[in-house]
Design a protein around this nucleic acid. Sequence first.
DNA 1: CTTTTTATTTGCACTTAACGCAAAAATACA
DNA 2: TGTATTTTTGCGTTAAGTGCAAATAAAAAG
Lengths: 217, 217
Amino acid sequence: MADAKEIDGGVREGRRERKRRQTRERIESVALSLFLERGFDGTTIEDITEAADVSKRSFFDYFPSKEEVVFAWQDSFSDELADAIAAQPKDASIAEVIEGALTSALLAASSDPQHLAIAVLIRDTPALCARNQLKYAKLEEKLTEALYARSGGAEEERFRLRLLSAIVVSTLRIGGERWNEGLQEASLQDFAHHVFEELWTALSELGTLLRQRNPNR
Amino acid sequence: MADAKEIDGGVREGRRERKRRQTRERIESVALSLFLERGFDGTTIEDITEAADVSKRSFFDYFPSKEEVVFAWQDSFSDELADAIAAQPKDASIAEVIEGALTSALLAASSDPQHLAIAVLIRDTPALCARNQLKYAKLEEKLTEALYARSGGAEEERFRLRLLSAIVVSTLRIGGERWNEGLQEASLQDFAHHVFEELWTALSELGTLLRQRNPNR
DNA sequence: CTTTTTATTTGCACTTAACGCAAAAATACA
DNA sequence: TGTATTTTTGCGTTAAGTGCAAATAAAAAG
């Protein structure tokens, strides 16, 4: 059990790992094609495994359920967002950090044209809608952690940051819906910037409104 | 097909309707007991139908899936909240409307002691977690509509109200988690009031923060 | 009270998702 | 080469959920 095939410090991908990765990618790609073609419910695991040329049993060795194939890519988005937050300039305001990081993560994600089709698929499949909401919850957690890690970390800040994360993720969700409904005339950057403008303005006005109504608190 | 059994204008519940309602309630009650006793995954549909003395097939005539039994009561909460919002005094501020309506809806809901057990069940069952998130989305929609209906309805207000709804629902979610984690020393009223105080303060400060950073916008 | 109509319940067969286990095949290593 | 390990597969099983047609119960009509 000595370490094998190590070259300049990194473990190079052996045949096993390579094949496993390829199989996983093949299943994912084939499954998504079929989902888009025949719908999620109209595609059986057998359809997928036949097209991907693996046994039905092997499918569950790669993905715990049919749904997870659709959401496999989601984890990477959370991670990218967290990285992007850490990468924002030190002197940026919290609004700039969030807007900057989210915009760059969104741009990276949208480079894959399949994502739009997947979004539509999710919207039109009730079973996927529920699972999709869970994605937002996870994203919210990650975002909170990333913001908390960045901003010194006073315990009293936690609620505020959690709330802010929730607000941002909600905005992402609402904005995403609007983007999918609309005609995508503007570029994603411009659209995102516009939505953030609305967000900051709305929050700012909301703050004013609340302070006026509860002046003594 | 003439109308039958009508007395003073209302259609009295016939034996059919009554039995159907009773059966539905029996299934629901039995199912929840079993879920709490053996867990959601550890309870089969057959367990439920045997205990409720109906056929397996009939179960699906009352509920579209095992999960829906757990969430059957949720719709009524949304409706109560919408009613409570409409019932708030005309001259109340938006914050007062939300806090007042949500508090009263929460109090009404929490009068059923099973709700706490259900909340724990949901938290501990992954399959239910996903479905649970969908509940929040629905609540958000309802809340937006209720606020929109109340506040004259300028089209430009929609985004703000939607955002505010999202914020409130997020707060409800976060507060709910905290409530379940904690020891419930305070009363629900006091706890809710405290959470709302935090919310209004945080929003107000957030507004200030954003205005300082984006003074020219 | 009997017949007819309508709504509800049930039984049964069927599809599909998902899991467990042990045999078989592929790969790594010596 | 031979041996150990990992991966893949086949097969059997459980349980959710659907469709359909027969049986049953309730309501309406005669």
